[in-house]
Amino acid sequence: MDRMHFGEHSSTQFNEALESIRNHLMEMGGLVEKQVVDALQALLQADSALAEKVIETEKKVDNLEILIDEQCTRVLALRQPAASDLRLIIAVSKAVSDLERIGDESAKIARMGLQLAEEGESPRGYVEVRHIGNHVRNMLRDALDAFARFDAQKALTVAAEDNEVDMEYASAMRSLVTFMMEDPRSITRVLNIIWSLRALERIGDHARNIGEQVIYLVEGKDVRHISIDEIEKKLKE
Protein backbone atom coordinates (compact mmCIF):
# COMPACT_ATOMS: atom_id res chain seq x y z
CA MET A 1 0.00 0.00 0.00
CA ASP A 2 2.52 2.52 1.10
CA ARG A 3 4.70 3.54 -1.75
CA MET A 4 6.21 6.72 -0.43
CA HIS A 5 9.81 5.74 -0.29
CA PHE A 6 12.92 7.81 -0.54
CA GLY A 7 16.60 7.05 -0.64
CA GLU A 8 16.45 4.88 -3.76
CA HIS A 9 16.88 7.54 -6.37
CA SER A 10 19.67 6.95 -8.80
CA SER A 11 20.61 10.58 -8.18
CA THR A 12 21.85 11.22 -4.63
CA GLN A 13 21.51 14.94 -5.14
CA PHE A 14 17.85 14.54 -5.98
CA ASN A 15 17.45 12.42 -2.85
CA GLU A 16 19.12 15.05 -0.76
CA ALA A 17 16.95 17.81 -2.21
CA LEU A 18 13.77 15.89 -1.42
CA GLU A 19 14.97 15.00 2.06
CA SER A 20 15.84 18.60 2.72
CA ILE A 21 12.39 19.77 1.65
CA ARG A 22 10.74 17.20 3.90
CA ASN A 23 12.93 18.12 6.85
CA HIS A 24 12.27 21.79 6.43
CA LEU A 25 8.55 21.17 6.19
CA MET A 26 8.65 19.17 9.43
CA GLU A 27 10.70 21.90 11.06
CA MET A 28 8.17 24.49 9.95
CA GLY A 29 5.32 22.26 11.12
CA GLY A 30 6.93 21.95 14.52
CA LEU A 31 7.40 25.70 14.76
CA VAL A 32 3.82 26.44 13.79
CA GLU A 33 2.45 23.80 16.15
CA LYS A 34 4.37 25.36 19.00
CA GLN A 35 3.12 28.78 17.94
CA VAL A 36 -0.48 27.63 18.18
CA VAL A 37 0.07 26.05 21.60
CA ASP A 38 1.89 29.15 22.91
CA ALA A 39 -0.68 31.54 21.48
CA LEU A 40 -3.46 29.67 23.23
CA GLN A 41 -1.54 29.67 26.49
CA ALA A 42 -0.74 33.36 26.17
CA LEU A 43 -4.40 34.10 25.61
CA LEU A 44 -5.73 31.92 28.38
CA GLN A 45 -3.15 32.89 30.98
CA ALA A 46 -2.82 36.53 29.87
CA ASP A 47 0.91 35.95 29.42
CA SER A 48 2.02 38.93 27.37
CA ALA A 49 5.68 37.79 27.26
CA LEU A 50 4.66 34.51 25.66
CA ALA A 51 2.39 36.38 23.26
CA GLU A 52 5.33 38.56 22.17
CA LYS A 53 7.34 35.41 21.59
CA VAL A 54 4.63 33.96 19.37
CA ILE A 55 4.55 37.13 17.28
CA GLU A 56 8.33 37.03 16.95
CA THR A 57 8.31 33.41 15.79
CA GLU A 58 6.19 34.60 12.88
CA LYS A 59 9.33 35.89 11.16
CA LYS A 60 11.04 32.49 11.36
CA VAL A 61 8.02 30.78 9.88
CA ASP A 62 7.90 33.23 7.01
CA ASN A 63 11.58 32.65 6.24
CA LEU A 64 11.06 28.90 6.24
CA GLU A 65 8.15 29.29 3.84
CA ILE A 66 10.32 31.22 1.41
CA LEU A 67 13.12 28.69 1.76
CA ILE A 68 10.88 25.67 1.11
CA ASP A 69 9.23 27.37 -1.86
CA GLU A 70 12.63 28.05 -3.35
CA GLN A 71 13.67 24.45 -2.90
CA CYS A 72 10.45 23.22 -4.51
CA THR A 73 10.92 25.53 -7.48
CA ARG A 74 14.48 24.31 -7.90
CA VAL A 75 13.46 20.67 -7.89
CA LEU A 76 10.69 21.37 -10.40
CA ALA A 77 13.08 23.20 -12.69
CA LEU A 78 16.03 20.86 -12.46
CA ARG A 79 14.52 17.41 -11.97
CA GLN A 80 11.15 17.47 -13.66
CA PRO A 81 9.77 15.21 -10.94
CA ALA A 82 7.04 12.74 -11.83
CA ALA A 83 4.56 10.56 -9.96
CA SER A 84 5.20 10.44 -6.20
CA ASP A 85 7.99 13.01 -6.38
CA LEU A 86 5.76 15.38 -8.29
CA ARG A 87 2.91 14.86 -5.80
CA LEU A 88 5.27 15.43 -2.89
CA ILE A 89 6.47 18.75 -4.29
CA ILE A 90 2.93 19.91 -5.04
CA ALA A 91 1.63 18.80 -1.64
CA VAL A 92 4.54 20.37 0.21
CA SER A 93 4.24 23.70 -1.55
CA LYS A 94 0.53 23.84 -0.75
CA ALA A 95 0.98 22.66 2.84
CA VAL A 96 3.63 25.30 3.33
CA SER A 97 1.25 28.11 2.50
CA ASP A 98 -1.36 26.57 4.86
CA LEU A 99 1.25 26.40 7.62
CA GLU A 100 2.19 30.00 7.03
CA ARG A 101 -1.44 31.03 7.33
CA ILE A 102 -1.74 29.02 10.54
CA GLY A 103 1.27 30.97 11.79
CA ASP A 104 -0.51 34.22 10.88
CA GLU A 105 -3.66 33.12 12.67
CA SER A 106 -1.78 32.19 15.84
CA ALA A 107 -0.03 35.57 15.77
CA LYS A 108 -3.50 37.08 15.55
CA ILE A 109 -4.56 35.06 18.63
CA ALA A 110 -1.41 36.19 20.42
CA ARG A 111 -2.26 39.84 19.66
CA MET A 112 -5.78 39.32 21.06
CA GLY A 113 -4.10 37.82 24.11
CA LEU A 114 -2.02 40.98 24.51
CA GLN A 115 -5.11 43.18 24.35
CA LEU A 116 -7.08 41.00 26.73
CA ALA A 117 -4.15 40.95 29.15
CA GLU A 118 -4.09 44.78 29.15
CA GLU A 119 -7.81 44.97 29.80
CA GLY A 120 -7.78 42.50 32.66
CA GLU A 121 -8.87 38.91 32.97
CA SER A 122 -12.38 37.70 32.25
CA PRO A 123 -13.26 34.03 32.35
CA ARG A 124 -16.24 34.34 30.00
CA GLY A 125 -15.67 32.49 26.72
CA TYR A 126 -12.33 31.03 27.76
CA VAL A 127 -13.92 27.62 28.13
CA GLU A 128 -14.87 27.59 24.47
CA VAL A 129 -11.44 28.88 23.49
CA ARG A 130 -9.71 26.18 25.50
CA HIS A 131 -11.98 23.49 24.14
CA ILE A 132 -11.79 24.45 20.48
CA GLY A 133 -8.10 25.27 20.91
CA ASN A 134 -7.33 21.75 22.09
CA HIS A 135 -9.32 20.32 19.26
CA VAL A 136 -7.57 22.39 16.65
CA ARG A 137 -4.17 21.67 18.19
CA ASN A 138 -4.83 17.95 17.90
CA MET A 139 -5.98 18.36 14.33
CA LEU A 140 -2.82 20.19 13.38
CA ARG A 141 -0.70 17.59 15.12
CA ASP A 142 -2.51 14.76 13.38
CA ALA A 143 -2.21 16.45 10.00
CA LEU A 144 1.55 16.87 10.46
CA ASP A 145 1.86 13.29 11.69
CA ALA A 146 -0.05 12.06 8.68
CA PHE A 147 2.33 14.04 6.47
CA ALA A 148 5.38 12.56 8.14
CA ARG A 149 4.06 9.01 7.92
CA PHE A 150 2.23 9.40 4.62
CA ASP A 151 -0.80 8.12 6.43
CA ALA A 152 -3.95 8.79 4.42
CA GLN A 153 -6.25 7.24 7.06
CA LYS A 154 -5.04 9.64 9.71
CA ALA A 155 -5.39 12.52 7.28
CA LEU A 156 -8.98 11.47 6.79
CA THR A 157 -9.66 11.72 10.55
CA VAL A 158 -8.31 15.29 10.45
CA ALA A 159 -10.88 16.16 7.86
CA ALA A 160 -13.60 14.52 9.95
CA GLU A 161 -12.49 16.43 13.06
CA ASP A 162 -12.75 19.70 11.20
CA ASN A 163 -16.48 19.15 10.89
CA GLU A 164 -16.73 18.84 14.69
CA VAL A 165 -14.69 21.99 15.15
CA ASP A 166 -17.01 23.84 12.81
CA MET A 167 -20.04 22.71 14.80
CA GLU A 168 -18.44 23.66 18.12
CA TYR A 169 -17.49 27.00 16.69
CA ALA A 170 -21.09 27.64 15.67
CA SER A 171 -22.42 26.80 19.11
CA ALA A 172 -19.72 28.87 20.86
CA MET A 173 -20.71 31.76 18.61
CA ARG A 174 -24.31 31.46 19.60
CA SER A 175 -23.55 31.44 23.32
CA LEU A 176 -21.12 34.38 23.04
CA VAL A 177 -23.65 36.41 21.07
CA THR A 178 -26.23 35.71 23.79
CA PHE A 179 -23.70 36.82 26.40
CA MET A 180 -23.02 40.08 24.58
CA MET A 181 -26.74 40.79 24.42
CA GLU A 182 -27.01 40.18 28.18
CA ASP A 183 -24.04 42.38 29.05
CA PRO A 184 -23.37 45.05 26.40
CA ARG A 185 -20.42 46.48 28.41
CA SER A 186 -18.37 43.34 27.68
CA ILE A 187 -18.90 43.56 23.92
CA THR A 188 -15.36 44.75 23.10
CA ARG A 189 -13.74 41.99 25.14
CA VAL A 190 -16.04 39.28 23.90
CA LEU A 191 -15.45 40.44 20.34
CA ASN A 192 -11.73 39.85 20.89
CA ILE A 193 -12.52 36.36 22.05
CA ILE A 194 -14.74 35.85 19.03
CA TRP A 195 -11.86 36.93 16.77
CA SER A 196 -9.65 34.39 18.53
CA LEU A 197 -12.23 31.66 18.05
CA ARG A 198 -12.53 32.66 14.42
CA ALA A 199 -8.73 32.37 14.07
CA LEU A 200 -8.83 28.93 15.66
CA GLU A 201 -11.55 27.85 13.28
CA ARG A 202 -9.39 29.04 10.35
CA ILE A 203 -6.45 27.06 11.75
CA GLY A 204 -8.71 24.01 11.77
CA ASP A 205 -9.57 24.62 8.10
CA HIS A 206 -5.89 24.91 7.20
CA ALA A 207 -5.15 21.70 9.09
CA ARG A 208 -7.86 20.02 7.08
CA ASN A 209 -6.24 21.38 3.87
CA ILE A 210 -2.95 19.84 4.92
CA GLY A 211 -4.75 16.55 5.53
CA GLU A 212 -6.23 16.73 2.05
CA GLN A 213 -2.78 17.31 0.59
CA VAL A 214 -1.58 14.19 2.40
CA ILE A 215 -4.39 12.21 0.80
CA TYR A 216 -3.42 13.60 -2.61
CA LEU A 217 0.21 12.80 -1.92
CA VAL A 218 -0.42 9.23 -0.91
CA GLU A 219 -3.39 8.26 -3.03
CA GLY A 220 -3.01 10.64 -5.94
CA LYS A 221 -6.64 11.71 -5.58
CA ASP A 222 -7.92 15.23 -5.31
CA VAL A 223 -10.34 15.39 -2.32
CA ARG A 224 -10.75 19.12 -1.98
CA HIS A 225 -14.17 20.72 -1.72
CA ILE A 226 -16.09 17.51 -1.16
CA SER A 227 -17.74 15.99 1.90
CA ILE A 228 -16.18 13.35 4.15
CA ASP A 229 -18.49 10.66 2.80
CA GLU A 230 -17.48 11.45 -0.73
CA ILE A 231 -13.80 11.38 0.25
CA GLU A 232 -14.21 7.95 1.77
CA LYS A 233 -15.98 6.72 -1.31
CA LYS A 234 -13.23 8.08 -3.53
CA LEU A 235 -10.53 6.42 -1.45
CA LYS A 236 -12.21 3.06 -1.74
CA GLU A 237 -12.26 3.16 -5.52
Binding site: E19, M26, E27, E33, A148, R149
Partner: peptide
Protein backbone atom coordinates in the same frame (compact mmCIF):
# COMPACT_ATOMS: atom_id res chain seq x y z
CA UNK B 1 13.50 18.74 13.46
CA UNK B 2 13.53 22.08 15.23
CA UNK B 3 10.61 22.91 17.42
CA UNK B 4 9.21 19.44 17.60
CA UNK B 5 9.95 16.99 20.33
CA UNK B 6 7.78 14.34 18.96
CA UNK B 7 10.18 11.39 18.95
CA UNK B 8 7.54 9.11 17.49
CA UNK B 9 7.23 11.31 14.42
CA UNK B 10 10.96 11.35 13.80
CA UNK B 11 11.02 7.63 14.12
CA UNK B 12 8.24 7.36 11.62
CA UNK B 13 10.19 9.49 9.17
CA UNK B 14 13.23 7.29 9.60
CA UNK B 15 11.26 4.14 9.08
CA UNK B 16 9.82 5.54 5.91
CA UNK B 17 13.13 6.63 4.57
Amino acid sequence: ALGTNDAARDKAINEQA
